[in-house]
């Protein structure tokens, strides 16, 4: 019974997430644009799609709370207690990588990016070429989040100030932008914002807060959050690098 009630509560949250988008769009459709929907978009399909979005997001988040989050938090605590720095870093990398691969917003945006890149002529327009581009992009982002979490954990150990690392990251982004192919710049910048949503933030924050509260002289408030900030700069650097040196290894890339 409690389970059903919490599922209902979660679906209310998902609805509340979606409501502003739908309300603003409905207002514009009815008051500003005042045109019928095009034939390719039936209203019933849209409504059905939105029901899918709400139901899917509800199940997804509730499932995370039941399975992945408690298990991930327990593991993070166990690794902090275990005291082996090597294992902690390996775990941190794997956690960042694995959670990013399953991030819904990244899955959606990567496949859209592959279509656009194919239309732009950077890669073949075949389905295989697009799929391998989307897959490679997601892997690059996932590895970069793994690396960011490792860097963030090392930072908490050493007590390096966060803003210096971020500023250094910005400078690297600036330099790489000068070298990267123009087609990859927008995708690279956006990939930083895409990673920090549903799965990655809670898992990575749990690791950071757990670690910061177990080391003397570190504050969970100041040091726990830093991981997310790093996880949104590192993907930009890695995707720009991928554009500079990695792109040519993909199948279907125009020479």
């Amino acid at each position: 019974m409690g389970f059903v009630a919490s599922l209902v509560n979660q679906s209310k949250d998902s609805l509340r997430d979606l409501a502003p988008v739908v309300l603003v769009m409905a207002f514009f459709q009815l008051v500003v644009i005042r045109q019928p929907l095009p034939d390719s978009l039936a209203l019933i399909d849209l409504v059905l799609g939105l029901v899918f979005v709400v139901a899917g997001l509800t199940l997804f988040i509730k499932g995370l709370e039941l399975g992945l989050f408690p298990l991930g938090e327990n593991l993070a605590r166990a690794f902090v207690k275990k005291g082996s720095v090597t294992w902690l870093l390996v775990f941190a990398f794997a956690l960042g990588l694995g959670s990013t691969v399953a991030e819904p917003a990244l899955i959606a945006v990567a496949s859209r990016a592959a279509e656009v890149v194919a239309q732009g002529g950077l890669i073949d327009s075949s389905v295989e070429a697009q799929n391998s581009f989307a897959f490679a992009l997601r892997m690059v982002v996932a590895v970069s989040v793994g690396a960011a979490v490792v860097l963030g954990v090392v930072r908490i150990f050493k007590g390096w100030p966060l803003h210096l690392i971020i500023i250094a990251g910005y400078v690297i982004v600036l330099l790489l932008t000068l070298l990267a192919p123009a087609e990859m710049i927008g995708i690279a910048y956006d990939s930083g914002g895409v990673t920090t949503s549903t799965i990655t933030v809670p898992l990575v924050t749990a690791l950071g807060v757990g670690l910061a509260s177990s080391i003397k002289g570190r504050s969970p408030m100041l040091d726990g959050f830093g991981l997310i900030a790093l996880a949104s700069v590192m993907p930009i650097i890695f995707v720009l690098l991928f554009g500079i040196i990695g792109l040519q290894f993909l199948p279907g890339v125009a020479p």
């Binding site: 399909d45 059905l48 799609g49 899918f52 979005v53 139901a55 899917g56 819904p104 859209r112």
Partner: peptide, 11 residues
Amino acid sequence: FFLVGLEQALF
């Protein structure tokens, strides 16, 4: 479900 709904409605 979320990804199907995304392709069908949000995008």
